[in-house]
Amino acid sequence: MIEKILTDYITFIRSFEALLKDKYQKDINPCSFSITFFERLGSINGIEYYFHGSGCTVKKDGIIYTYDISINEITFTQWDLTELIRTHPEYQKLNYSEDYIEYELYQLINKGILEWLTFERIEGKAFGCVFKCYRVVQESFFLQ
């Protein structure tokens, strides 16, 4: 079921981005041009959005989608996915624990569909550790 949830998550994000690209006639990721061409806080087709740093929080029909963009890849934390599940009328009934979600995401890492997102340096300090962030490396797996 986590694969279905991630499929819905990624499909929604890419559809939202397509709306912005179409409206502003740009063929690049909206995070790249949000400062220049439109307000970082707004709405489009009943979708409220807020661009922040390298990411975006999007809300539609009470469902919250938060994510970050690295070049053109979707990155997210376990909290981002948990927030989607918590606010989605169908998914919240599943009562998934954080441990279960983490385990299922780890299975997708083992399949090569996701990867850990590691931070080598933050503000000049070497970390070389994982902050439970995930990077979608096989988006086509979800968008079949």
Rank of each mutant, 00 (worst) to 15 (best):
N29Y: 06
I64N: 04
L94C: 09
E83L: 15
W79V: 10
N72T: 13
E39K: 12
I101F: 14
K93D: 10
E39F: 07
T82E: 09
I35N: 12
S54A: 02
F33V: 03
D68L: 09
D99G: 02
Q92W: 08
Y103E: 11
I69Q: 11
I85P: 03
I71R: 15
I85D: 02
T82I: 14
E98L: 15
E90K: 13
P89H: 13
Y91V: 00
D68I: 06
R86D: 05
I44D: 05
I69D: 03
G53L: 11
I85F: 06
L84M: 08
T36V: 03
E98R: 15
H52E: 05
T75A: 02
S34K: 03
R40Q: 11
Y96M: 12
D61R: 09
H52N: 08
E73N: 11
N29D: 13
H88Y: 06
Y65D: 00
Y100D: 14
V58I: 14
Y65I: 04
R40L: 11
R40S: 04
E48S: 06
N95G: 10
Y67G: 03
F33W: 02
L94K: 08
R40K: 09
K59W: 12
E48K: 14
E39A: 01
N95I: 01
S34Y: 08
S54Y: 01
Y96R: 08
Y49L: 05
Y96V: 01
D68W: 13
N95Y: 00
E73F: 04
E98D: 13
I63E: 09
F33C: 09
G55L: 03
E39D: 15
I64W: 07
N29E: 14
P89M: 11
Y67H: 06
Y103H: 04
L94M: 07
I35L: 11
